[in-house]
Every structure is written in structure tokens, then in C-alpha cells.
Design a protein around this nucleic acid. Structure first.
Lengths: 232, 232
DNA sequence: AATATAGTGTGTATTTGTTACACTATTAAA
DNA sequence: TTTAATAGTGTAACAAATACACACTATATT
């Protein structure tokens, strides 16, 4: 806006809270930092946004560098700009969260960046100490996911393409942090009429195999506009 | 994060969508810009965040400079950073929205900044052409307010301290853009048990004066935690 | 004085959503 | 063939949301 400054550029970072769901537990992908500040500490994947790069593209790049995957669901969360959040001066960070199908990952992720020594999935309920204000960012993102899951079918972004109703229920339970009634959950979920019942069943389990479902993409799109109300 | 850059600083702006409610209509405070780029255009109040200033404080300052008021309700909306959004290079803006009691304003606001020639309330349904991506920012903020009003009593931030139930209903109708059933609205709203019925009535109206209500602050606080569900 | 209009105030029937709750079926492993 | 583990299913009571009916009050216009 100041017209006397010819070519202004913003220096800022982006950080991404990457959620995964495995064995009934929500997990977050953290990196061990290989650069100062907070070298050797756990932190969120994130780095400076390049000057010729849209923010969304930077996040996509960071997601790819840490998971090897593209097309991951992501959404902007909040911008953190407290004067003291970064030891080297005021650097704001535009935080995103992303939801990942863990079965799309072939193996343990190996980051291809200089600033991360390794990337490891941590259970949300048992996080190590984190650098910067990253703990605060994670707390805020889980709040947002918790709210968003009640009016938008984002939960499916965390599940494999074919899933059982029990898996879906466990996911809701993990996000909301409380048990749900099985019959009521199924009734409600099937009533939305966004799931396609498959004739396939689970394999390799030592008990009665559960039926598999997948999202009905057409109906899904409709519901995405109208907004679900999956409360409580 | 790059440890070889000693004192990094972010250059970025903040813009604020200030909502007001008057005569059954939602309004937005716009300024006529007095600086390039977009000199002479309508735009949102907003400017560079100073290097020693928290973002929230910058927004509070901007709100004060344009309305003369402090303690206005405000919330971060989204950060816009498209490469082409600012003609002088990539400047990201951290957008906020604010909700204002118009009766707190003594008169037409007179901005005390250099970059604004005047500030004028515009009806949300009839906005002029705006500079930058500000039209987009307003669209996004009304979506957010529309959603937030269903689970949080932010509507009261737009009303005078003492208000009638009809005013409250008109506000919901203006934000949601549709008519509500009067009897059901009142029943539902009174059921939340967050309003205090006053023994005062409207004055100076040429029809039956309506009873005035105000928020019951104690109960309000409780509800704010638990979250309302005022849907549809 | 009559009429139209806009507002307040109360009640009730209907529909819709939420909750609580317990047994049978299937599969693999021992 | 028994055991262990999980899948799968229906109904009734209750609460909440909605639609709609009616009555009353105040004011402006004619």
C-alpha cells in the first residue's frame, strides 16, 4: 500500500499439521529439526514460503517433501504472528492442517529436505515437547478438525478408500475423544445416504469379517454443499 | 528458521471487515483510499503491521483509527497471499472481521489516518467495486459470520445493549438471508436462557412499543463455553 | 370512527432427531 | 467343538424443532 516502497516482499513461513489415523488413534507427523533455531527438537513440517510461490503451493510442496504424496486434503488454519514466537525476529507463520490416508504411504516417510533429519508419526495424545509455538498450533488445529467433522465429511480423508463402519466410528471417537453408541452411529451415518455398500468384506481378521463401504462420490458432493449436521 | 539470516522481519498488512447493523440491514465500513495503489478506490480499512506490533494489536489500532472505539469484538478470518493480489509485489494480508454496535458511534466515522480520505458505511447487499481482493475477503467473512452465529452468541456484538426480540430476529435474518418464524424464533431464543427481560420498553415508535432485553452476562459466559446450536 | 398495518404474546399438534438398550451371527484359533 | 472376538441389528421413550392458529395492542390513514 505504501507507494514509496517499490518492491515489497513478505518473509514468512508456513507450518502444516499433518493428521493420520491408524489403529484407532489420531497421529501427527513431526520432524526432528536439523537447523537452528530448535535444532534437534521436534517440530511441525514447515519452512519459508518462496517469493514467487502461492501459499497453498508451498504447503503442497512441503506435504510432498515429507510424505511423497500429492493431492492431500488441506486447509488453512490460522496465522500466528506473536512477536516472540520466533527467536530470530518476528516471523509470522501461516498454519495449515492436512488429512492423510495412512495406507497411501508406502513406508515410513523420509523427508527430502535439509532442515528435517527425520519425520515420525506421533500419537496426538502423547506428543513430545515441540519448538516454537507448534504445540499451540496443533491444539488449535485439533479444535478446528473437531468442529469441522460435524458439518463436513472430511473424516473420509483419513480413511482408506474402502472402510468398515467400525473404522469410521473409531475415527469419530478419536477426534471427539469420546465413545459413541454403535447402533445410533450406524443409523445416522447410513441415513445420510452418502455411503456405498460394497459386496466386499474385510480380510485377514480372526473374527467375523465386517462389510466394506466407500463414499458415494455423487451424493458426497451434494452433501458437501448442504452441510451435514453430525452433532454430539 | 534459516539460521544464516540474522534478523528477519515480515512485511505484511492486515485488513478488517467491520460489520455494523442498522435498520434491518448489515453494513460494512469501507474507506476511500488516499494512496496508491488503488488511490480513489473503495477498500477495506487496513495497513501494514508494524515490526514491533502484534497482529491483533495492529487490528485494534486500525479499528480505533477508523471508528474511535476500543474493545470491539474481532476475530482472525483468513490470510490471503495470492501472488497477484497486490500490484507492488507479493504482500500477504491477514484479514480480520469485527462486529460493531452502531449506536456506540457518535457520528459518521472520520478516519485519522493518511491513507483514507473518508470512511462510509455501505450496505452489504450493495457494495461498490473494491480494490485488491477485498471483495473476496468480504465474501469470505460473511460466510464465516453466517456459520459462527449458529454456535456462538456473536450476534449480540452487533446490537445495542438493550434490544428488542424483533431486532435480534432481523439480525439473524439479515445474516442468514432468509425469513424466520417469529414465534419459533422467540421460543428458541428465550429457551437458551441467556437474555434478561427488562421492564423497559422502546420509545419514540409510532406503534406498540416492544419490550427490551439485554444479555445476561453470567449465563452468556456459560453458554459461550458450551456452544449453542442455533441451526437453520 | 373505521380500517389497515405492524407489532407482541401464548398455545398446540406434528414432525424430526436423540438416546438408551441386548441379543444373535460369523469367523478363526485353540 | 468350544472359545474368543467382533459384526450386525430394531424399537420405544423422550426431547427438540417446526408449522400453524389465534388473540391482543398500538398507531396511522382515511
Amino acid at each position: 500500500m505504501q507507494s514509496n516502497l517499490p518492491h515489497l516482499q513478505s518473509t514468512f513461513t508456513t507450518d502444516c499439521v499433518i493428521f493420520g489415523f491408524h489403529e484407532g488413534e489420531l497421529k501427527v507427523l513431526l520432524i526432528e529439526r536439523n537447523e537452528y533455531p530448535f535444532k534437534g527438537w521436534w517440530a511441525l513440517p514447515g519452512f519459508f514460503v518462496q517469493h514467487n510461490e502461492n501459499i497453498d503451493d508451498a504447503v503442497k510442496r512441503i506435504l510432498y517433501e515429507h510424505t511423497g504424496l500429492r493431492g492431500i486434503y488441506m486447509e488453512q488454519l490460522y496465522t500466528f504472528g506473536d512477536l516472540k514466537r520466533h527467536p530470530q525476529g518476528r516471523i509470522i507463520t501461516v498454519a495449515y492442517y492436512a488429512l492423510l490416508r495412512l495406507d497411501d504411504l508406502k513406508s515410513q516417510p523420509e523427508p527430502i529436505t535439509d532442515y528435517a533429519r527425520q519425520a515420525v508419526w506421533h500419537p496426538l495424545n502423547n506428543l513430545p515437547e515441540l519448538g516454537f509455538d507448534h504445540r499451540h498450533i496443533i491444539d488449535k488445529s485439533i479444535q478446528k478438525v473437531r468442529r469441522k467433522i460435524s458439518y463436513s465429511p472430511i473424516a473420509f480423508e483419513l480413511l482408506p478408500e474402502k472402510f468398515t463402519l467400525t473404522q469410521l466410528q473409531q475415527l469419530y471417537e478419536a477426534i471427539w475423544g469420546r465413545k459413541l453408541d454403535k447402533r445410533n452411529f450406524r443409523k445416522k451415518m447410513l441415513n445420510y445416504d452418502i455411503l456405498k455398500e460394497l459386496s466386499e468384506f474385510q480380510r485377514g481378521v480372526s473374527y467375523r469379517a465386517a462389510r466394506l463401504y466407500k463414499l458415494d462420490k455423487r451424493k458426497y458432493a451434494k452433501v458437501f454443499q448442504n452441510e451435514l449436521t453430525f452433532s454430539r
